[in-house]
């Protein structure tokens, strides 16, 4: 009986992980951790793991062993639980290390703590990291429109850095991102980019000038204004925008670039 329970527990470990992945993938939750193209791989993984769980629960104690376990059939039940211990004889199969229990930790953390998208905290810690270089291709001018042009924060930064910022000079632009701050009382419109998952996050941010009432940290804003000439990444002064207006925004489902 003990062995059967442990085998059930194993199935539940797999099932729990599958359920967590499926739940994250079917909502927007997965976007806090990985890029959007991971949705279907995660759904597939969750479904397969749940299917595997059902199989692990339903298989009769002997079905997976009958055909090959004959000579040590009498110990085939406990080979499922914890014979990772070194003193075990090696006729066992299905060795499951105790470390397997750790597989429940991600699910527990997702349900209990539900870690949010990376935000101002990480951006402030990574503020001094160099940002990605400008794309190698020819820098196209911003589209000619009457109103302000929507520009990504990272793009605004590299445009400021190339050709003395001629492509954004004297243009009304709108930057959307969340608010981060520094110890000098400045605030920034900020975005975090991920290439693969949140582990490789990099932050880009543009200081907002002439707008004293900093919105709440980590809240989302759209800042309309003009580039402060001479500011650029790695220059004397970090990239800045002279704000004409700042409007609150809803946080997007996918906060990463």
């Amino acid at each position: 009986m003990v062995a059967a329970v442990t085998r059930t527990t194993q199935a539940l470990v797999v099932g729990f992980l599958g359920a967590v992945l499926l739940r994250l993938a079917l909502g927007d939750g997965y976007l806090r951790y990985v890029t959007s193209w991971m949705k279907w791989p995660l759904v597939a993984t969750g479904v397969v793991l749940l299917g595997l769980t059902v199989w692990m629960l339903l298989r009769p104690a002997s079905s997976d062993h009958a055909d090959h376990d004959g000579d040590h059939d009498d110990d085939h039940d406990d080979d499922h639980d914890d014979d990772h211990d070194d003193d075990h004889d090696d006729t066992h199969e299905h060795k499951v290390p105790a470390m397997t229990w750790l597989a429940i930790v991600p699910g527990v953390i997702v349900f209990v703590a539900s870690p949010p998208s990376l935000g101002a905290y990480l951006a402030e810690r990574r503020a001094d990291d160099p940002v990605a270089a400008a794309p190698d291709a020819e820098i196209l001018p911003l589209p000619a429109t009457d109103g302000p042009v929507d520009v990504e924060v990272a793009e605004f930064m590299w445009r400021a850095g190339v050709e003395d910022g001629t492509t954004i000079k004297d243009r009304d632009v709108r930057l959307t991102g969340f608010v981060s701050t520094d110890e000098n009382g400045n605030w920034y419109v900020t975005r975090i980019a991920i290439a693969c998952c949140a582990a490789d996050a990099s932050a880009s941010r543009v200081r907002v000038e002439d707008y004293d009432d900093a919105p709440e940290r980590d809240s989302w804003v759209a800042v309309t204004g003009r580039w402060v000439e001479g500011t650029a990444p790695g220059g004397k002064s970090e990239t800045a925008i002279e704000a004409a207006s700042v409007e609150p925004r809803e946080a997007p489902a996918n906060t990463y670039q």
Partner: peptide, 11 residues
Amino acid sequence: WGTIFVAIVVQ
């Protein structure tokens, strides 16, 4: 930490 940890596992 939680976000990055879950991200690595999910990925």
